[in-house]
């Protein structure tokens, strides 16, 4: 199938075949899912999570806000993030300073090369 065949330099990519394979795998997964236990009952205690005996939070209370997502990631990388955030001062003088600094560095590199 030559339509949609992209040459990538080291190989080829065919999105349409990828879609066909994904659909086939999806059908297989659905078939496997339907082979599940027949005695499963919706909206009974079987569907409730067990949280070490603690009461389940309401859906409204259990929604994790944006500030809490990836907290561990940012906490682990705080030594990377602190200086990075600090240089984003929001001050236009600093914005201009970075342009001058980069220009000076490129001047030196091109000058000595």
């Amino acid at each position: 199938m030559s339509i949609g065949l992209l040459e990538t330099g080291s190989g080829y990519w065919q999105a349409i075949i990828w879609v066909i394979i994904t659909v086939i795998i999806g059908i297989g997964v659905l078939w496997l899912r339907n082979k599940g236990k027949e005695e499963y009952k919706k909206n009974t205690n079987q569907t409730k999570p067990f949280l070490s005996g603690n009461p389940e939070l309401t859906k409204e209370d259990s929604h994790v806000g944006a500030s809490h997502i990836y907290w561990g990631f940012t906490e682990a990388l705080k030594h990377y993030y602190q200086p990075l955030v600090n240089i984003h001062t929001g001050n236009i003088n600093d914005y201009s300073g970075w342009v001058v600094l980069v220009m000076a560095i490129i001047f030196i590199i091109v000058g000595v090369s």
Binding site: I87, H88, G90, D94, Y95, V99, V102, M103, I106, V110
Partner: peptide, 24 residues
């Protein structure tokens, strides 16, 4: 010409939003 090149590369990269001239 070298000076012109450096000026153009720097400011056009800034206008394209390249780090570390991206803060705008």
């Amino acid at each position: 010409d070298k000076i012109a090149l450096i000026l153009l590369v720097t400011v056009l990269a800034m206008k394209a939003g390249s780090v570390p001239m991206h803060m705008w």
